[in-house]
Simulated scan of single mutants.
Amino acid sequence: MNTQKRLSRREILAAGLSLAATACFPIRANATTDWPAAGTIKMIVPFNPGASTDTLARFIASGLSRRLSQNIIVENKSGAGGVIGTEYVANQPPDGYTLLFQTNPFISAPMIIAGNHKLPYDPAKDFQPIGQIAVAPLLIVVSNDLKVTTLREFLDVARTKPMTMSYGSAGIGSINHMAVELLSSMANVKLVHVPYTGLGPALTDLLGGRLQMIAASLPSVLPYVNAGKMRALAITASGRSSLVPNLPTVAEAAVPGYQVEAWWGMFAPAKLPVPITQRLNSELDSLLASPSIVEVLAREGASRRPISPDDFKKMILADVPRWRKLIQEAHIVAG
């Protein structure tokens, strides 16, 4: 009799524990599927306010806010070529309430900052890619003081007179910097890099003849090219641009296999739940289909590039060894 009572209590206790355990699963699922349920979403931009990346991030945040019916605020955490803000996001909970808006230095900057030491963050492991937003080519332009009309002529002069041709960039590790370093490496020429704290001062020095070359976004240099104040030689993308259809690509003009594009994308901390990743990617893709975003991107000479999180991750994984090899071989270090 006592044994039956004890067994009955055990059975009741086991059943109660089983029920409690089962009840936990719907709660976890709802916490994911109901996202965003409460609170404000932060989108971290690791660059200064007013830059083109910041402007685009605010437009994307505004559009996503409307689609998600959730407040999204853009917060700038600049410094160290984007590393400070990016590292901040890597250390946040993967709950969908902290996002990162980044561009090409996402991959190169931590390698340059770290040197031979531990990376401040691992672009391939510490983040969940949400989706790529857009890509844009760069335009290689030279000073009018330089009497060359093609990229091949420029490279021939640089090869004949190593370390006599200088080029400017928006800073060490910027896409302007890395694009020209890759060109130098593939074309076997040696150029002098002059980093600035932004592209504006570099363009001023190019116009004044104090620099010989820059690789820059089309909107930033095309007005000068059209006005005859600098000369365009080639475009860095894999295909020609409708904005300069007669201008060859670098690969066509002189360096087969060369291709570099500026890109923008959105990330979250690693281990973001799959349903939140998919929801964000879906809403982002829908936003990129709107005519207003196409118009905004066109001002940057960019085109939309909606891809899946998995494809975006594959792109990151493919770019990591390419830039690591270049950084090591060119001895690129933080200034």
Rank of each mutant, 00 (worst) to 15 (best):
K313Q: 14
T3R: 15
R299T: 12
N48P: 01
G239D: 09
L146Y: 10
R305F: 15
V250N: 05
L17P: 04
T40F: 05
P94I: 07
V244W: 09
R58T: 02
V296M: 06
H193Y: 01
G239A: 09
L138E: 01
K5R: 11
A215F: 07
P256V: 12
P275T: 13
P248A: 11
A262R: 00
S292R: 09
D156L: 08
P219R: 07
G168P: 06
L317Q: 14
A80C: 09
R324V: 07
A20Q: 04
A334W: 13
E300K: 06
K314Q: 15
L203A: 06
L247W: 11
P110M: 14
T3K: 15
K77I: 15
S290Q: 12
P137K: 03
K5P: 00
S282R: 00
I112F: 06
P49Y: 12
Q278A: 08
A20W: 12
T236Q: 03
A80Y: 06
G173H: 12
P26C: 10
P306C: 07
G265N: 04
I113R: 07
P309L: 09
M111D: 00
L139R: 04
M230W: 13
I175E: 02
K161G: 01
A29Y: 11
L7F: 06
P273C: 05
A158C: 12
L64H: 02
A253Q: 14
A20P: 08
L317N: 15
A289H: 14
P46W: 08
L139C: 11
N104L: 10
P245K: 09
L207G: 08
T98P: 09
T149R: 14
A270P: 04
T160D: 07
H117Y: 11
Y224F: 15
E295M: 09
M186Q: 12
V45I: 11
S217R: 10
G239N: 10
V192D: 04
R152V: 09
T22G: 15
L218H: 05
L218F: 03
A302Y: 03
L139F: 01
Q128I: 08
T103I: 11
A302M: 14
P137E: 13
N91D: 08
M230H: 10
G228C: 10
F47M: 09
D156I: 04
T40K: 15
V294C: 02
L243E: 12
Q132T: 02
D285Q: 04
L280E: 00
T204W: 06
F59C: 00
Y121S: 08
L183T: 12
A23H: 08
N144H: 10
V148G: 05
A109I: 08
A202I: 04
Q328P: 01
P291K: 07
I172T: 15
E300D: 13
F59N: 01
D156R: 13
K229E: 07
P46Q: 07
